[in-house]
Simulated scan of single mutants.
Amino acid sequence: MKLYFKYMVILFKSQMQYRASFWMLTVGQCLTPFMMFAGLYFLFERFGQLKGWTFFEVAMIFAVTHISFAISECFARGFDTFSSLVAGGDFDRLLVRPRSTVVQVMGSKFEFTRVGRLTQSLIVLIWAIASLPVDWTAWKIVTLILMIACGVLVFTGIFILAATLCFWTIQGLEVANIFTDGGREMAQYPLNIYEKWVSRFFTFVIPFACINYLPMLYILGKTEGSDLLYMISPLAGVVFIIPCLLVWHFGVKHYRSTGS
Rank of each mutant, 00 (worst) to 15 (best):
G78M: 02
F37R: 02
F159T: 01
C244Y: 06
A187I: 01
G157H: 01
S226Y: 11
K13E: 09
V239S: 08
M8H: 11
I129Y: 08
E174N: 14
P215F: 10
G39P: 00
M147E: 10
T143R: 08
F5Q: 06
E174P: 06
S199L: 08
I67F: 09
R77K: 15
T26C: 09
P215T: 02
C150V: 00
G157M: 01
T203A: 05
A87F: 09
P234R: 12
A70C: 10
L229K: 13
E73Q: 08
I170S: 08
V154L: 07
F82D: 05
F91V: 08
Y230K: 04
L50H: 06
T169S: 14
F167T: 01
I67A: 10
M36H: 12
H249G: 08
M35A: 11
L125K: 02
S199H: 14
F79C: 00
G28V: 01
Y7I: 00
L245Q: 14
P215M: 04
W127L: 15
P190F: 07
F110N: 10
A176R: 10
S68C: 00
A63D: 07
L228Q: 03
T32Q: 13
Q104A: 05
S72Q: 11
L43F: 11
F37V: 01
K109S: 15
A63C: 03
M24G: 11
V27Q: 06
P190A: 09
R256G: 08
K2H: 08
I141A: 15
I232F: 12
D90A: 08
R93V: 00
A138E: 09
G52N: 10
E73G: 10
G78P: 03
R200Q: 14
I67K: 03
L228Y: 11
L161G: 04
V154R: 12
C210P: 00
R200V: 03
L161F: 13
D227Y: 12
W197L: 06
I61S: 04
W136C: 02
Y189M: 15
Y4G: 04
L191M: 15
L214E: 06
L229Q: 07
P243G: 08
E195S: 10
F44Y: 09
I158D: 01
V152H: 05
K51A: 10
T65F: 03
I242G: 01
I71K: 03
V175R: 13
W127T: 12
W248N: 02
R114W: 10
I160Y: 03
L191G: 13
L235R: 07
F110I: 02
F22G: 01
F250V: 05
A87P: 01
F250T: 08
V142K: 09
V124E: 12
V64H: 08
G225A: 06
W136G: 05
Y213L: 04
L246M: 11
V124T: 04
R256S: 14
F62C: 02
A76M: 08
M106P: 07
L229I: 13
Y7W: 04
G237F: 04
V238I: 15
I242E: 13
Q49W: 11
R117F: 05
P33W: 05
V252D: 06
L146I: 00
L229F: 10
G89M: 07
G107P: 09
I141P: 03
L40Q: 14
F208I: 01
A149Y: 12
S84W: 12
K13W: 06
R184F: 01
V58S: 07
R46M: 11
L228E: 02
R93M: 05
F56E: 14
A162T: 02
F240R: 09
I206S: 09
P190I: 00
